[in-house]
């Protein structure tokens, strides 16, 4: 479902060049639960942003569902981000001035779902993440864990087949982290492909497959129950 071929990402700052990713080859199948680990600055977020169609690689090929992403124009990319990918960020990225409900409705709005159907769907998901009683609140009135649950509800509204999470528990205490991971576990069991970046080994435990990154390279990977390859 996700195929990366020779993906390279170079950041240029004047004369300075930083190679954030060098020659990444990777395939992730439908329904997998993948964790990405590695030291700070090893290129994990860069990779996630490319997979999430928020950023473009300097070179290489990214094939999503048989479609070459580089060939898509901005409009089509928007649609891919809307329908195929749910993104959960470490810093939540909610619209602070809007209600929780409106935040969750946003992807549906851009996806062309309107009226009662949209509100119903958003309420359903807020219920699922345990925030049914907070729909009229603003994100600023919520705790970190609650904010992240709003973000997860938002990522799920369009029934996207892929859920990307870049350190979703990075800003949370261990209790909130456990709640979030329980949610991810359930979502995965419903068939969603999950790719999750984390620094914490016990979070990576939830995944079936762990990719280890270092210095812009995919160093090794482990699968649950098997030794490092």
């Amino acid at each position: 479902m996700i195929t990366l071929q020779n993906i390279r990402k170079v950041y240029r700052n004047g004369p300075l060049e930083v190679e954030a990713l060098s020659s990444i080859n990777l395939t992730i199948e439908r329904g997998e639960f993948v964790a990405i680990m590695g030291s700070s600055g090893s290129g994990k977020s860069t990779l996630m942003n490319i997979i999430g169609c928020l950023d473009v690689p300097t070179s290489g090929k990214y094939i999503l569902d048989g479609e070459e992403v580089q060939a898509l124009d901005e409009g089509k990319l928007s649609s891919v981000r809307n329908r195929k990918i749910g993104f959960v960020f470490q810093s939540f990225n909610l619209l602070g001035r809007q209600t929780v409900l409106h935040n969750v409705e946003l992807p549906l709005m851009y996806g062309g779902v309107s009226g009662a159907k949209r509100t119903q769907r958003a309420l359903e998901l807020l219920d699922k993440v345990g925030l049914g009683g907070r729909v009229k609140h603003k994100p600023t009135e919520l705790s970190g864990g609650q904010k992240q649950r709003v973000a997860i509800a938002r990522a799920l509204t369009m029934d996207a087949p892929i859920l990307l999470a870049d350190e979703p528990t990075g800003n949370l205490d261990s209790k909130s982290s456990e709640d979030i991971m329980a949610l991810f576990k359930g979502i995965h069991e419903e068939g969603t492909t999950i790719i999750l970046v984390t620094h914490e080994p016990d979070i990576a435990e939830y995944a079936e497959r762990v990719l280890w990154f270092g210095d812009g390279k995919l160093l090794r990977e482990t699968r649950r129950g098997s030794a490092a390859t």
Binding site: G52, S78, S79, R81, N93, L95, Y110, G111, R154, M158
Partner: peptide, 15 residues
């Protein structure tokens, strides 16, 4: 940042 968020969840340039 708001524009970034909207784009990340599927807002088209047109929207």
């Amino acid at each position: 940042r708001e524009i970034g968020i909207r784009k990340a969840i599927g807002a088209t340039p047109r929207a």
